[in-house]
């Protein structure tokens, strides 16, 4: 009865009102679908943005061969036996083949597979190892190891580089396909959460520590070139 009444009522007001009502009812149904579609699409986009995009953005490369830091630290005497300040105050960074050959020769010292590769491919042919540098900053950045090691508040290697000296395996080098920078600069955490000081090394991270330690972020040219 109700329906008839409704229809009559509608018709009483004229044909136009009736079709409006029907339209409205249909629209409501569409709105519900729209909300569901929005939520699903949002979830898909959100997840692909946060889970798939980083995979697409970063390429993963392996080092030429594995380097066992832990083994070398135990054989040698701390980080600075290979990574040291030169006499002019500049930093040698990753040692050249020449410094490796102060100990290594064409004949391997140990029995690891990696050393065999090193001796055969690089020492024998006197080719520099094309290491991929995790901590390489963009080329507009000037970083002075001397200032941080010999300055007023000397720092440990660990404060910025983490416990790399205790690692036995080199992790894959992840390179940003757009900028060409190492992922260690931006940091692994896609949310931008930093648990340790060495988790990422962006300008803000440098500035944060500078503000704390020196009371000022410093002028641009302090770290830019």
């Amino acid at each position: 009865m109700n329906e008839i009444e409704k229809t009559e009522d509608c018709c009483g007001h004229g044909g136009e009102g009736c079709s409006d009502m029907e339209k409205k009812a249909r629209d409501d149904k569409g709105l519900g679908m729209g909300v569901i579609f929005f939520i699903v699409a949002f979830a898909v986009c959100f997840l692909s943005g946060w889970l798939v995009f980083p995979k697409l953005l970063y390429s993963s490369k392996e080092q030429p061969f594995n380097f066992d830091h832990a083994l070398h630290v135990s054989e040698m005497d701390g980080c600075d036996s290979c990574h040291y300040l030169r006499e002019d105050g500049t930093y040698n960074g990753i040692p050249t083949l020449e410094s490796c050959m102060e100990c290594h020769d064409v004949e391997p010292l140990g029995e690891t597979e990696d050393e065999a590769i090193f001796c055969e491919k690089y020492v024998a042919t006197e080719t520099e190892v094309p290491w991929l540098v995790y901590s390489r900053q963009p080329d507009c950045v000037f970083f002075s190891h001397a200032a941080h090691l010999n300055g007023k508040n000397p720092m440990d290697c660990v404060s910025c580089h983490g416990h790399i000296g205790e690692s036995e395996k080199c992790k894959p080098y992840e390179e940003n396909r757009i900028t060409g920078y190492s992922r260690d600069i931006w940091g692994k955490n896609i949310w931008g959460i930093k648990k340790n000081p060495w988790d990422r090394m962006k300008m803000d991270d440098c500035a944060e520590c500078h503000l704390e330690e020196t009371g000022h972020q410093g002028a641009c040219f302090q770290c830019h070139k």
């Binding site: 006499e87 002019d88 105050g89 000037f142 002075s144 200032a147 090691l149 300055g151």
Partner: peptide, 14 residues
């Protein structure tokens, strides 16, 4: 300025 930066490194080293 990069020469200043390098001079500064020497100063730190010394």
């Amino acid at each position: 300025f990069h020469r200043y930066q390098l001079a500064k490194e020497q100063v730190y080293y010394d």
